[in-house]
Amino acid sequence: MSERVLALEDASFSFGDLTILDEADVAVERGEFVALVGPNGSGKTTILELLAGLRAPDAGTVRRPTAAARSTAYLPQSPGFRSGFTVRETLAFYAGLLGDDGDGVDVDAVLDRVGLGDAADRRVEALSGGMTRLLGLAQALVGDPPVVVLDEPTSGLDPDVADSVFDATAALATDDRAVVVASHDLAAIEARADRVVLVADGAIAFDGPPDGLLAETGAATLREAFSLAVADRDRAAVDAAATAPSGGDSQ
């Protein structure tokens, strides 16, 4: 039986009058690759921040693993790293934050795992956008956290690099690690995600396998299903005057 490692239980959160979640329930099991999708402004980034413990819900509970030295890894959209340091030095610094638990981190092995082994001695400011995202993924693996939360890891990348980064992201879930990723890359999600959680209007509008959303909407592709699912929803963020409550793409 699968083990639940991450959950929102009756969780509510709002920015003033703007409701992001209203008594929502979401549970993620070990080894699952869950994609969080929704229109701009629907609150995907905020939900990820709730899951990662960067925000506290107004009401309800967020359950995360407690036994690990680092329970939940987080990678923001468009991550950056302090310039002047090499890729290896940057990852070694993050491993150092684990204290004694970081002593066993094989920095080069982690870099190899995400495909950055050959760039270990390169300064971070000399990395391409895709390589910076891969370094972000490598950072997410430090300390072997049972849960990884990633905010749009492929945004702004060309299709080939985006596919490569998405493959690396999906691979994180293969060793019993739960991965939750917010993304607009619906083709990649359709091909790789175990589950899709569609958030809109402060509620979880759908939670199930990609095929389930296709069946529910009668669409041929997830891209089409997304448009059908949010067609009648309030697209607050499309309004240029709408406030951007948190980082990311005004989510």
Partner: peptide, 17 residues
């Protein structure tokens, strides 16, 4: 401020620091 601007402060918070 620079660590915050790059999003690294949010990442630090997922470490035991």
């Amino acid at each position: 401020q620079g660590d915050g601007e790059r999003g690294e402060l949010a990442v630090f918070r997922t470490y035991p620091v």
